[in-house]
C-alpha cells in the first residue's frame, strides 16, 4: 500500500482547501444529529453533555506536542503519525510499515508508548504527546540517546527514534530488569540491520542507572 493513497495527500504537502467554498467546519451534533437522536424526555443540560461533536472534512485540530500546543488543518482520517510528519514537520518519528507491526512510529501519549500510525490525530487532542524531538533538554541528550550512541545501538538509524522512545518507556515501566525481559518488552520495535544486542545493552544500561 502506498503512503500517498492511504493518506490521500502527496508527501510533504498537507491538503489545503482549494477555494473558499470548501470550508472547515465543526458541527455540533445538537444540530442535525441531535434532532434525529435526542430522546424527547432528556433534559437540556443532559443533552449538552451527552451529545458531542462530529467532525467532517478539513478542520482545525489542536495537538499538544512536546509541551507546545500546535494547530493543524486536517481531515479526521489523518493519523497521528502523518500529522507529526506531514503537517508539523516533526520527521523524527518514522513511518515503517504503517500497520503497527514495526514500531518505528512509537511516541508517548499521556506517558504511555503507542504506535502513532494506528491512532487518529483527531482522537489525540487534549493529550500530552511526546516525540523523539521532545526527549533532549536543549543540547543535553536524554540518557537513552546517550546510551544508544555509546553502545552503537543502530546501523542505518531508521528504527532508532522508535527504539529510543520504546526504550525510555520500557525502563519507566520496570520491564528492563534482565536481558530476556528487555528483549520481550522491546519486541514491538523491529531492526532490520540487526542491532538488537547493542539496543539491549543500551536499554539495560539506562535501566541500571534508573
Amino acid at each position: 500500500m502506498s503512503t500517498v493513497s492511504s493518506s490521500g495527500t502527496p508527501e510533504g504537502t498537507p491538503p489545503h482547501p482549494e477555494d473558499g467554498t470548501r470550508r472547515s467546519f465543526m458541527k455540533q451534533a445538537g444540530g442535525l444529529l441531535g434532532l434525529a437522536l435526542a430522546p424527547p424526555l432528556v433534559a437540556q443540560a443532559e443533552r449538552l453533555t451527552a451529545y458531542s461533536k462530529t467532525v467532517e472534512g478539513v478542520t482545525s485540530l489542536q495537538l499538544k506536542i512536546n509541551g507546545t500546543v500546535r494547530t493543524i488543518q486536517a481531515e479526521p482520517r489523518v493519523t497521528l503519525l502523518d500529522a507529526l510528519r506531514e503537517y508539523l514537520d516533526l520527521t523524527g518519528t518514522k513511518k515503517g510499515c504503517d500497520h503497527g507491526q514495526c514500531g518505528a512510529c512509537t511516541v508517548h501519549v499521556d506517558g504511555r508508548r503507542i504506535n502513532s500510525c494506528l491512532t487518529l490525530a483527531v482522537m489525540n487532542q487534549g493529550k500530552e504527546i511526546t516525540t523523539i524531538e521532545g526527549l533532549a533538554q536543549g543540547e543535553a541528550l536524554h540518557p537513552m540517546q546517550e546510551a544508544f550512541l555509546k553502545h552503537d545501538g543502530f546501523q542505518c538509524g531508521y528504527c532508532t527514534p522508535g527504539q529510543i522512545m520504546s526504550g525510555v518507556a520500557c525502563v519507566k515501566e520496570g520491564h528492563a530488569s534482565s536481558d530476556d525481559q528487555t528483549r520481550e518488552w522491546m519486541s514491538g520495535n523491529l531492526c532490520r540491520c540487526g542491532a538488537y544486542p547493542n539496543i539491549v545493552a543500551a536499554v539495560r544500561e539506562v535501566a541500571g542507572k534508573a
Partner: peptide, 10 residues
C-alpha cells in the same frame, strides 16, 4: 484509507 466523518460519542 477512505475519508470519513468522526463523532466523539457523548
Amino acid at each position: 484509507m477512505n475519508n470519513f466523518s468522526y463523532t466523539q460519542a457523548g
